[in-house]
Simulated assay, not measured.
Amino acid sequence: MSWLSQKKEWWGIKSIILTCNTVMGAEGEESIEERYFISSLPMRIEETERAVRGHWMVESYHWHLDVTFREDGNHTLEKQASYNLNIMRKLSLNILKLIEVGSKALSMKKKRYAIGTNPEKHLETILNL
């Protein structure tokens, strides 16, 4: 934590938050990740917990948009078309989160692929959401 010595330079800092997250690896191994957040929030656990969870919920959503739909690779220049594509990706992502495809849990990318290969099979389920 050598960076902590720089805290005098951070204007408005009121708290440093440490979260410990248990992460499951691809092989089923468990590891613990420590994340630090520098915050202007007062040290009230309920407020900081809500802020950290909210931050990671947004990060997770954007990660899914990039990984599942390769949004960062899209270079649509026309503003309205880009806006419309963004809405369609978000709508599609929300549908993928709600729908079950097959008998086992699939990643968002695999769900998208499965629905894309046989859309008629899944159409009724999607329309009934």
Rank of each mutant, 00 (worst) to 15 (best):
S2W: 04
W3D: 01
L4C: 00
L4Q: 02
S5Y: 01
Q6F: 01
Q6Y: 01
Q6V: 00
K7I: 02
K8S: 06
K8A: 03
K8I: 04
W10K: 02
W11S: 08
W11N: 05
W11M: 03
G12A: 09
G12E: 04
I13S: 04
I13Y: 07
I13L: 13
I13T: 09
I13E: 02
V23N: 05
A26F: 03
E30Q: 09
I32T: 11
E34W: 12
E34I: 12
Y36G: 06
F37T: 14
S39E: 11
S40K: 14
S40Y: 03
S40D: 11
S40P: 01
P42S: 08
R44K: 14
I45Q: 14
E46R: 10
E47P: 00
E47G: 06
E47V: 08
T48A: 13
T48W: 03
E49I: 09
R50E: 15
A51M: 04
A51N: 06
A51D: 02
A51T: 04
A51P: 01
A51G: 02
V52P: 10
V52N: 15
V52A: 15
V52Y: 12
R53S: 02
H55P: 00
H55Y: 10
W56A: 12
M57F: 01
M57K: 14
M57E: 13
M57P: 00
V58I: 11
Y61C: 02
W63G: 04
W63D: 07
H64A: 13
L65A: 10
D66S: 09
D66N: 14
D66C: 09
D66F: 02
D66T: 12
V67T: 15
V67Y: 10
T68S: 01
T68F: 01
F69G: 08
F69A: 05
R70D: 03
R70F: 00
E71I: 00
D72G: 02
G73R: 12
T76G: 04
L77F: 03
E78N: 07
K79F: 05
K79Q: 08
Q80K: 10
A81W: 01
S82G: 02
S82W: 07
Y83T: 02
N84E: 11
N84K: 06
N84S: 01
L85W: 12
N86S: 04
N86E: 07
M88R: 14
K90E: 12
K90I: 06
K90H: 06
L91H: 09
S92D: 07
L93W: 06
N94P: 00
N94F: 00
N94D: 12
I95G: 08
I95E: 05
K97F: 05
L98A: 06
L98D: 08
L98Q: 13
I99W: 10
I99F: 04
I99E: 05
V101H: 08
G102L: 05
G102A: 12
K104H: 08
A105D: 10
S107R: 14
M108I: 11
K110N: 13
K111P: 05
R112T: 07
Y113L: 15
I115W: 11
G116K: 09
T117V: 13
P119A: 15
K121T: 11
K121P: 00
H122K: 05
H122L: 03
T125Y: 03
I126S: 04
L127W: 09
N128R: 15
N128A: 11
N128W: 00
N128Y: 01
L129N: 05
L129C: 04
L129W: 03
